[in-house]
Write a protein that binds this DNA or RNA. Sequence first.
DNA 1: TATTGTTATACTCTATAACTATA
DNA 2: TATAGTTATAGAGTATAACAATA
Lengths: 122, 122
Amino acid sequence: MLLAVAERIQSHLDATARAVGVTHAQVKVLMQLDQPQRLCDLASLQDCDPSSITALVQRLERDGLVQREVDPNDARARRIRISAKGKRSRQKFLELMGDGRAALDTLSADERAALAAMIAGG
Amino acid sequence: MLLAVAERIQSHLDATARAVGVTHAQVKVLMQLDQPQRLCDLASLQDCDPSSITALVQRLERDGLVQREVDPNDARARRIRISAKGKRSRQKFLELMGDGRAALDTLSADERAALAAMIAGG
DNA sequence: TATTGTTATACTCTATAACTATA
DNA sequence: TATAGTTATAGAGTATAACAATA
């Protein structure tokens, strides 16, 4: 049941990202770029392999949503910075997404009550 | 916040599926095979393109988790049936997954209360 | 030597378009 | 003509392994 809700939120998230012209994974990265982040830090935050982030960031850069710059403190590292276009995409996504409550709209009152009790009592 | 919980459940789901040696998408299909299903019905249930299900089922069949048979009522259609091995994988997944409550364990009591209120009142 | 990141490669999921076979 | 399914192709996400540059 909790799983069904998670699936529904996930679908809502995917659809919203698509409406903005980005993917779910790309949005997750954009969300973490309030400050420029090193690539390895992004990998830690997303709990995935650095090579995956390299690929992801390459697509974000290709689409003009981020810029890469050398870390002034470590010539090995790259800092990823969100662009103006990236900020617009992120903002648009958040507006469309709301707080995710829309994903609960398909649940009945009974289902919502049961779910709330489960979470509160978990 | 709701989104964070959904992400956490999603991760738990992915990790559990991986532990059983299948993918999240494959488990979702196995869950819908209490009765044999036609491929086009699986596509509807998963809300995805039939060609995606064709590919997915090919991998499930390769791994011995399902069998395909011609629908006796329609020579165009194929019925997908879960195998004994598939049932064991599904069972193991459900046992490891529990009811998904484990995904809530990282939330504080305050967070859980806030989330429960949001769901109940949504 | 250890860390940061990239490249090469491979696999899964997904979609679109063109196709075959059957209804 | 419409429906069920497949194949070809492509793009995204992910991982492993081997590698280069820097610390």
